[in-house]
Structures are given as structure tokens and as C-alpha cells.
């Protein structure tokens, strides 16, 4: 077997990716890449060490209509690279711009313990996650509602919606330095809803997430000092199409996994840029749980001046599962 497809709940992704890397396999991993930033670092290291091909199962940065935005991502990349919109840019990901942060995946704050069904090896299902009494809502598709295994709607759709934004902003090799949240207080076990999460980069670029119906419906998808882009690729710079033609197309990336496997060249969405977009998702989860603004060091990959946040960055795993 040469390729491993990791399709477990997210709390297993990190461990399995690292094990697969050590075993010399190429890896096709579901999103989010890892549940915590700490695991993401280990996956990146393992792959760098063992030379595997790694891809995440999200694809919008290189193909398909980008949800309700009404355009694929490539022309947006071209427009931003041209510099016409100015700098820095603010991208708003919300229902109004075509991305629904649905809150199906909320956990229940009160779970009655129930007998474990015969066919489920609950201990193995939990793996590295702490032991808590069994209830079907923890597993069976609703696991996304619990911090121990995932991050709710943010964890589910986060990389799909955010990774292409990271790509078009050219931020594949860095991370935001600040994350702010506006949400009801989160339960320690069950994931809840949120109103907004705002990420700010060193250079002033921002990624804004608005959940549910929150936010101003007239907001542009991309707002820049010299121009804005709205849903359906409506751009308010006069004659932008003609001006844009002068610029080159964005460089193609390998978008066939098997091509990467054969040529040993990195896939379009790999352990480097995938780690970075997963980190955006995961730092949002930490900020939600702590309910305060956090600062992050994109080089050291740790939170600044917040011990509690760093204790959520690297969460010790239950033996014998380690990463």
C-alpha cells in the first residue's frame, strides 16, 4: 500500500498522518489537517523528515466554483496579484458573501452517559482524546460538536473557506498575528455558535468570519484601499477586466494527487500551506474557548503572552497514542 487516506474524525488526523509519514506512505488527509496547532507542527516535521507527498482534501484554491461567491478562485488570485486593489486587503467570509457558517455542529452541554454499543471500540475511537463517559452524540457524525474531537462549524468548513483566502492573499508561509472573537461564552466540552472571528496579519491584511446571519449584507468579499470585489466577481475598479489582461495567469499548481505521487513534487495543497490554513482555524478555536483576543508569533508558532492559549496549542495525548 502506497497511499493512506485519512478519513477519521479530526482528533486522529495528526497521529495518523505522522505514523503514515514514518511508514513511508503518501497521505491524503481530510480537513481540518489537525485538531491542534501543536499536532500540525509535528505533521509538518514528520513529512519534511521522511519526504512523503501530503495533500488535504480541500480543493477550492485550484478548482471549482467557490461556494456562493459565484466565481472560481483563480481570477481572484490574478486580480490581487496585479496590485490593483491596493494593500492591505480585508476578506470577509460570511453568508452575505456566499459562505454559510452553519451551526449544525453544536454540541450538547449535557450528555447522559449511555452504555457503549457492542460494535464500537469506544476506547479506540477516543484514541488520544481524554476519556469521558460515552454518549452517542459524541460519535456518530455529531462528533464535530465537541472540542475534544473537532471545532464545530469552524472546524468543519474552516479550511474549505479559509485556505483559498490564504492563497489569494499570498500568506501560505505565515500566520495571522492576532485573532479576536465575538461569541457567546463557550462550554468546555460542547462547541457553540459565534458571531465573528477576525484574524489580522502583520501587514494589516485581515480575514473576517461572520457566523449565521451576522454582519452587514452589503460588505464586499475583498475590500482594498483602491477597490472592492463583491459576490459574483463584481469589482468596482473601472475597466478592471481590460487592465487585468496585462497580467499573467497565476502559476498552475499540481492538482492531480497521483501526479504529485509520481513526480514527488508537492501537491497544490500540502503539509506546508495546509498547516498554515489549519492553524488559522485552530487559533480561532483557542480564542473562542478562552473568549479573549490572542496574539500569535508566526515564526515561533506559539501564542504571545498567554500561557493558557499555549496549553491549548500542544495538548498532551492519552497513552499509548503519541505524535
Amino acid at each position: 500500500m502506497d497511499i493512506v487516506h485519512i478519513a477519521t474524525p479530526p482528533h486522529w488526523h495528526g497521529i495518523m498522518s505522522v505514523e503514515a509519514a514514518k511508514a513511508g506512505k503518501d497521505i491524503f488527509c481530510e480537513k481540518p489537517m489537525t485538531r491542534t496547532i501543536g499536532e500540525g507542527k509535528r505533521v509538518r516535521e514528520a513529512i519534511a523528515q521522511h519526504g512523503n507527498i501530503f495533500r488535504l482534501n480541500t480543493w477550492f484554491r485550484f478548482k471549482s466554483q467557490f461556494y456562493g461567491l459565484g466565481t472560481p478562485v483563480k481570477p481572484l488570485k490574478k486580480l490581487i496579484d496585479s496590485g490593483m486593489l491596493g494593500w492591505p486587503l480585508k476578506v470577509t467570509i460570511s453568508k452575505h458573501t456566499g459562505f454559510d457558517w452553519k451551526f449544525y455542529w453544536v454540541g450538547k452541554t449535557h450528555l447522559e452517559p449511555q452504555p457503549i454499543p457492542e460494535e464500537l471500540d469506544y476506547d479506540l475511537w477516543l484514541g488520544p482524546a481524554p476519556y469521558k463517559p460515552y454518549n452517542p452524540h459524541r460519535v456518530h457524525q455529531t462528533f464535530r460538536g465537541y472540542w475534544d474531537y473537532d471545532g464545530g462549524g469552524l472546524g468543519d468548513m474552516g479550511q474549505h473557506y479559509i485556505d483559498p483566502v490564504q492563497y489569494i492573499l499570498g500568506k501560505d508561509h505565515t500566520s495571522p498575528v492576532k485573532v479576536e472573537v465575538d461569541a457567546p461564552q463557550q462550554h468546555p466540552d460542547a462547541v457553540g455558535t459565534w458571531r465573528s472571528i477576525t484574524y489580522t496579519y502583520e501587514d494589516g491584511c485581515q480575514i473576517v468570519l461572520w457566523g449565521g446571519d451576522y454582519g452587514n449584507p452589503d460588505t464586499p468579499y475583498i475590500a482594498g484601499p483602491n477597490g472592492n470585489v463583491y459576490k459574483n466577481f463584481v469589482c468596482d475598479i473601472p475597466n478592471w477586466e481590460k487592465k487585468l489582461a496585462d497580467y499573467p495567469e497565476p502559476e498552475p499548481q499540481i492538482s492531480e494527487f497521483l501526479t504529485s505521487v509520481k513526480t514527488r513534487q508537492k501537491f497544490a495543497l500540502n503539509e506546508e500551506n495546509g498547516f498554515r490554513s489549519a492553524t488559522i482555524v485552530n487559533m480561532g478555536a483557542v480564542a473562542l474557548r478562552l473568549n479573549r483576543t490572542l496574539h500569535f508569533d508566526p515564526v515561533k508558532l506559539e501564542f504571545v503572552n498567554d500561557e493558557a492559549a499555549n496549553r491549548l496549542l500542544d495538548q498532551p495525548a492519552r497513552a499509548p497514542w503519541n505524535i
Binding site: 449535557h110 461564552q185 462550554h187 466540552d189 478562552l290 473568549n291 479573549r292 498567554d306 493558557a308
Partner: peptide, 19 residues
Amino acid sequence: NNSQVEYALSGLTHYVMAT
């Protein structure tokens, strides 16, 4: 149901841990 208490205690935990 422990929801309220869990909110209160975990909130306290996170809050006092801030610098």
C-alpha cells in the same frame, strides 16, 4: 445537568489564567 456549573468553572479557569 452540570452545564451552568461547567460554564462557570471553565470560564473562571480561562479568565484567571490571563496574564
